[in-house]
């Protein structure tokens, strides 16, 4: 990428973040530039409405945190948006594509890639194989293409360069040839994040990226998340740790009992009485 492009990109990101700060914080508010727009999302389990979100927009080029007490429906919403669960009702679009009813792999191919709360590093594959698996448009991944080893080996070599760069960035390069099973829990989170980047997503959805991660690693994970935004990606993440949320998010959405009860800048949400009542208050009361 040339220097000119990089500075255009960083000014674009900065402009998007500045514009976002002008938005009034209220549930379902429209953003100047939204990458993901969801309407009337409902998911009922039996008689229980796990998710009931009237309208939600995720701003482009920003880090949005999805917070809320346990059972608020955050992960269910994640599953709905990423195609891993089917809503009872609802429409949503990603980057101008209507994606409701699309299967999960098609949504990922459009550039909306998620990670999981319980890490899904593929233990029986090496760290590098985990990365190579995720690369797009591989000739050798088709039954016919598998018989063209010269072509796919050349592709694999190109992907390996990119994979090693990413592993280096996430400090996993020395582990490249080890089985992913040998990584620590925190390293698996890092691997999952690095692997999702091999898909070249424009929206990265992280489900509790810091859960179970050694505190010493949290800081570098935070830097990585901010790094994703700074290279032009949009981040949506679920998190419980309020310190983490306050440190890195540009926008915060708070859910309780399936609905969005507040959204806004981190400061405004932290000061919101309903949020304190539903979430922060409960935590403060416990400690």
């Amino acid at each position: 990428m040339s220097g000119a492009n990089e500075s255009t990109l960083s000014s674009e990101v900065a402009a998007a973040r500045a514009a976002l700060r002008m938005v009034t914080g209220e549930p379902g508010v429209a953003k100047p530039d939204s990458i993901l727009i969801a309407d009337g999302m409902q998911r009922n389990f039996g008689g229980l409405a796990a998710v009931d979100v009237a309208h939600l927009e995720i701003p482009r080029h920003a880090i949005t945190a999805l917070i809320g007490p346990n059972g608020a429906g955050k992960t269910t919403l994640f599953n709905l948006l990423s195609g891993f669960d089917t809503p009872t009702a609802g429409h949503w679009s990603f980057d101008g594509h209507q994606i409701e009813g699309l299967r999960a792999y098609r949504i990922a191919q459009l550039g909306m890639v998620r990670t999981f709360q319980l890490t899904k590093a593929l233990n029986g594959l090496t760290v590098l194989e985990n990365m190579l698996l995720a690369a797009r448009d591989q000739t050798g991944e088709s039954l016919v293409g598998a018989f063209r080893p010269r072509k796919w080996r050349r592709q694999d070599a190109e992907h390996r360069t990119r994979a090693m760069d990413l592993l280096h960035r996430f400090k996993l390069d020395s582990k490249a040839d080890d089985f992913a099973a040998t990584l620590s829990g925190g390293q698996k989170k890092l691997l999952e994040m690095a692997r999702s980047l091999m898909v070249e997503p424009s929206l990265v959805m992280l489900d509790e990226p810091m859960a179970g991660v050694n505190p010493a690693l949290v800081e570098s994970l935070l830097e990585h998340v901010q790094g994703l935004r700074d290279e032009g990606r949009t981040v949506l993440f679920v998190e419980h740790d309020m310190d983490v949320v306050m440190t890195i998010s540009d926008w915060v959405v708070c859910m309780a009992e399936g609905s969005v009860i507040a959204e806004g800048t981190p400061e405004s949400v932290a000061a919101n009485a309903e949020v304190i009542d539903a979430y922060l208050g409960r935590v403060a009361g416990e400690s």
Binding site: R106, A108, L122, L133, A134, M198
Partner: peptide
């Protein structure tokens, strides 16, 4: 081949493979 790599990944965790854009 990469095709076989996808299969081994599916054997371990289908959802992980799906999340990476593969038609499991």
């Amino acid at each position: 081949s990469p095709w076989g790599r996808v299969l081994r990944a599916i054997r371990e965790d289908e959802d992980a493979v799906r999340s990476l854009g593969k038609n499991v």
